[in-house]
Design a protein around this nucleic acid. Structure first.
Lengths: 351, 351
DNA sequence: CCCAGGAATGTTAGCGCTATCGGCAGCGCT
DNA sequence: AGCGCTGCCGATAGCGCTAACATTCCTGGG
C-alpha cells in the first residue's frame, strides 16, 4: 500500500524525537506525495475523488493535525485576528468579542486576544508581541494610541479596525460611535427633563480615553445649557471599575456637590453600584438624587427603578468590525471604511 | 558599515513583495550574521557588549519584530498556552483568565483563547484547531470531555491542566474543587438552618457538566437528609444564562413546587436574577422564599439581603494552573499534579 | 613560546508547510 | 495524426527562524 514515493524520507526526524505527525507521514501512508495531502486539506476539489478518499482516511488514521505555524510561514497568512481590549472583566467587551469571533470563526479565522488594563504602555508592548504572530488583521478598542503604536501598525501593512469611539483620522478603518456626542445628548435629555445641576462622575486620568471623551461631551453640553457656570465634575479614577465603587462615589458626590440633582456617570458599572448603594442606604432615586449611566448593561434594566443610560451597539461593533476586516483581508474594498453605529438614550426610572 | 557577510542575500525576497523585515535585514545593517542577531534577541549574555549594542541599534532602526511562527517552527516551542473556557460572558471565568494570563505573561507565554458555549461538539473542533498551533500547554475548563478530546490531548503529549471541577482520573493535571461536595455542603447548611423543602434549579442537559455535578451533590444531600422523598429539581436549560432568566425561573418554581422553602440555584446568575425579580414583584426573601446561589459574584454581596452562596477560588484557579503548567512546560515536576483549592459557604441574608 | 580551552561568531541544515512550475495522461478538435 | 487544453499529481525551492556544529580569536599555564 505504501510505496516509497517520497524520497529523503529515510530516517529523518532529527532534532526532536517527540515531534508530531507530519504531512509526509500521512503521504507515505496514503501512497501519494505530501503536496497532494496538502491539497486535499486546502483545495479538495482539485484532487480526484478516490485519491482524496484515500488521503482522508490516512489523515484520520494518523490523527494528523496540520501545523499552523508552518502553514503561516509558507503561505504568509496566519488566519489570526489580533484583538486588543482594555479588560475582560468589563462585560461590555465580551459581547463585542462574541460578535467578532462568531463572524470570523465562520471564515476560518481565530481571535488572538490581549488586554491592556487601560494602560498605554501595556498596549504598546502588547501590540509589539501580537505583531510577532503576523496577524492578518487587527481589532483595536479605542482610537487614541501612542505614536509608536500607530507607526508600528501602519508599517506592518495589516488591516486595522479601531472601535468603540470615533475620530476623523483613523489608522485604517473605524467602527463605532461618538462617545462625546452620546454624552452630549444625555445631558441634553436631562436638561429637557428639567434637571439643572448635573454632576459628571467618571475616571479621568488612567488610560481610559473613552471616559475622557464622555467628559468632553459633558463639558460641551454644560457650556451650551449653563454657560458661564463651573461644570461639576468628579474624578473617579481612584476607584476600581466595579459595582462596589458606587457607594463611595455616591458619598463623594454628596460631599463635594450636595446641590447636584443628577449624577451623570461615565459608565453603568459605577451607576449601578450607586443605585445599589442608594438602595441599601435608604436614598431614594430619582427623588433624592437622579442617576444616569453609560453602556446599558443587563443589570441596568433590572435594578430598582431601572437605570437611564446610553445603549451602545455592543454586539454589532464586533460583527461589523469583523465584516470590515474580512473584506480588507480578502483584498476587496469594503462599502465604507468608517461605520458609525450610533447610540440610543434609554430612558428609565432613575432620571 | 554593512559588509556583505551574509551570502545569498542578493535579491531574495521572492514570493511576496510585502514581507516584513527579517533577521537577515537586521544582520546586514549591523554587519553581523543573522545567527548573532538571533542570539542578541534570545540570549544576550552570550554576545559581546559592543556587538550587542550595534545589533540592538539595528533592530530598532529597522523596526524589526521577530516572526514567531518561524521561531516556533524552528524551535519546536510556541510559548502559547491554549485556553478553553465555556463562555466569556460568565464573568467568573474572566477572573480565572486574568490570574492565568498574569502569571503566564510574566514568563513570556501568551494565552490563546477559545470558547465552547457549553457545547461538546464545539469543544472538540476547538481543541483540534488549537492543537494546530502546537501550544506548549493546555488550560481546560471542566473534567468531562469527549473520548476524542482526551485521545487527542494525550497523543499530543502537551501538558494539560483541567480546572473548575474534580475527578480521580484527570488527563494530566488538575486544579479545582469538588462541585459536588460544594453543593452537598450547601444543602447541609440549609438543613442545619432549618429548611425542609429545598428545590434545585439549574441547567441539566446542555454541555454544562459542572451544573450537573452540582445536581449530583444536591441529590446525594437530599438522599441523606430526606431519604425516601422525591427531590425537587427544576431544569433551567431552556433559559439563557443571564440575570433575566431569574424571573421566569422564580415563577416556574412557584408553580411546580409551591411548597418549597428554599430555591437552590446552580449559579449566582440565576439566583441574583431571581432576587431582582422577587424584589420587583414584592416577594420577600427569605421570608416568602429563601434563595441560594453558587459562585459568589460581586453582585451577590451587594444585592438586597445579600445572596447566600458558595465562594469559589476564581482567581487562584488561574494562578495555580499557570504555575503548574509552567512547571510542566519547563520539564520540572510540580509539587503535586492535583490541587484542591476548596470552596467556602458564604452565608448572607437570602437564606 | 606553544597549545589547551573557552568565548564569540559564523556556517549548515533543517522545522513542516505551501507556491510554483513542470510533466503526463486523456480529451476533443481540426 | 497532430495540436492544444484541461485535470491531476509530483518535484523543487523556499518562508524566517533556531539547533548544532565549525571556526576563529584570545587568554593563560606549562
Amino acid at each position: 500500500m505504501s510505496s516509497d514515493t517520497e524520497p529523503a524520507a529515510t530516517e529523518a526526524r532529527r532534532r526532536s524525537s517527540t515531534r508530531s505527525v507530519t504531512l509526509r507521514d500521512v503521504a507515505q501512508r496514503a501512497g501519494v506525495s505530501s503536496q497532494t495531502v496538502s491539497r486535499v486539506l486546502r483545495i479538495p476539489d482539485e484532487v480526484a475523488p478516490h485519491t482524496r478518499a484515500r488521503v482522508e482516511a490516512a489523515v484520520r488514521e494518523c490523527g494528523y493535525v496540520p501545523n499552523l505555524a508552518a502553514r503561516n510561514l509558507a503561505s504568509n497568512r496566519s488566519r489570526i485576528v489580533a484583538t486588543v481590549i482594555p479588560s475582560l472583566s468589563a462585560s461590555v467587551f465580551s459581547e463585542t468579542l462574541t460578535g467578532l469571533s462568531a463572524v470570523l470563526a465562520s471564515e476560518g479565522y481565530q481571535v488572538l486576544l490581549g488586554y491592556t488594563d487601560y494602560d498605554d504602555e501595556r498596549e504598546e508592548q502588547l501590540i509589539r508581541s501580537l505583531l510577532g504572530r503576523r496577524p492578518d488583521g487587527f481589532f483595536m478598542t479605542g482610537v487614541i494610541h501612542r505614536e509608536a503604536v500607530v507607526t508600528m501598525l501602519r508599517a506592518s501593512d495589516v488591516p486595522v479596525v479601531e472601535t468603540w469611539d470615533w475620530t476623523d483620522t483613523p489608522i485604517d478603518a473605524l467602527v463605532g460611535f461618538s462617545n462625546e456626542d452620546a454624552m452630549y445628548e444625555m445631558v441634553s435629555f436631562l436638561h429637557g427633563a428639567g434637571y439643572r445641576a448635573p454632576c459628571f462622575v467618571g475616571s479621568l486620568v488612567h488610560g481610559d480615553h473613552r471616559s475622557r471623551r464622555r467628559l468632553d461631551g459633558y463639558l460641551r453640553a454644560a457650556e451650551t445649557y449653563w454657560p458661564g457656570t463651573e461644570p461639576r465634575v468628579i474624578d473617579a479614577s481612584e476607584h476600581p471599575l466595579s459595582l462596589e465603587s458606587g457607594g463611595p462615589l455616591l458619598e463623594l458626590a454628596g460631599r463635594l456637590h450636595p446641590e447636584a440633582d443628577v449624577l451623570v456617570f461615565a459608565t453603568d458599572i459605577y451607576a449601578n453600584g450607586a443605585l445599589l448603594a442608594a438602595q441599601s442606604r435608604g436614598i431614594r432615586v430619582p427623588e433624592d438624587i437622579a442617576v444616569t449611566g453609560f453602556g446599558d448593561f443587563e443589570l441596568s434594566r433590572l435594578l430598582g427603578p431601572g437605570l437611564t443610560t446610553v445603549a451602545l451597539p455592543n454586539q454589532s461593533i464586533g460583527r461589523e468590525a469583523a465584516a470590515l476586516l474580512l473584506d480588507r483581508m480578502r483584498g476587496t474594498e469594503p462599502p465604507s471604511r468608517d461605520v458609525d453605529l450610533g447610540f440610543e438614550i434609554r430612558r428609565r426610572g432613575s432620571a
